[in-house]
Amino acid sequence: MTAVLEIEGLQKSYRSRRRGTRNALDGFDMRVEAGQVHGFLGPNGSGKTTTLRTLLGLIRPDDGRMRLLGHEVPADLSAVAGQVGAIVESPQFFPHFTARETLSLLATAGEVRSTRIDEVLELVGLRDRSRERVKTYSLGMKQRLAVASALLKEPRLLILDEPANGLDPGGIREMRALMRNLSETGTTVLLSSHILAEVQLICDSVTIISLGRRVAFGPVEKVLAAHSAGTVRVRLETVADLPEASEALTRAGFRVTREPDHLLLSGVEEAAMVTRLLAGQGLYVSELVWIDGDLESVFLDLTATAPAPGQSRQVDQSAKPAAVGQRSTGGWGA
């Protein structure tokens, strides 16, 4: 398949006299195939928005290579900008302009035919409210307007950063249908979102980023299969034994998530290893069930951002990618 977006070894650091150097992107790789809906996932502060901004020429990278629709960027960004529609982070517009004026100004600047304005307004459901000032819009309506502005160019690649933010359930479903339709007509969609169930539902492939590096990528089913295998739910005879069991299993190298009445273990190859280990400690298993992973649990596991009882996780507390990452050794984002 043809790649429409390729990133290799992307690096971006922010230097501060007070806080030293922070690597926002630390050799990040990515590849998005044409015609797909590709999910781009990562915890807060992991580098998603930095990646998108760098790709779109808003941030200057320190190192790495990027290609959009076969063109090197940022050097050749002008050649492809007309084919890439994007919304990055929260939609922001002049509050005193109407939606129609906002789109009309963009259409004039981008030399887009004026009839396209009505088409995109219809598409995002703002047709009847298009002559109202943006300041009267709800967050969801502004989000729709942002999507409309990104669609104005009839893009070959659509980059959407949290497009469902502020949308009502009906809006989320419409957005899902819209992305599917666009994908079917050949538009590639790169979707950055925290609504993982949504991503699992509509994306063909995903890239997961943590601390500026890719920790997982590929078709959704393969990522799920590769990273959710070996997850078991363990119940003990008495709930009071859970802390002791958790410590013993962690010492043995399992990744343990404590729940109020059970433990979730990942990285388990054989169930017998668990029962044997716990029995050796005088802890007796009452239930041991293999569970199918979903994208959310895979994400939490890979990025180590699952909430732990009694602990407040800080923004930069994510998985160290070197331990689980799959760095490419050559080729575009491969």
Binding site: S78, S90, F93, G110
Partner: peptide
């Protein structure tokens, strides 16, 4: 100034990256 403040400059640069 308002373009910078409201994100309009960023939007414009997504259309014209010069």
């Amino acid at each position: 100034g308002a373009e910078w403040n409201t994100g309009g400059m960023m939007t414009m640069l997504l259309w014209r990256p010069k």
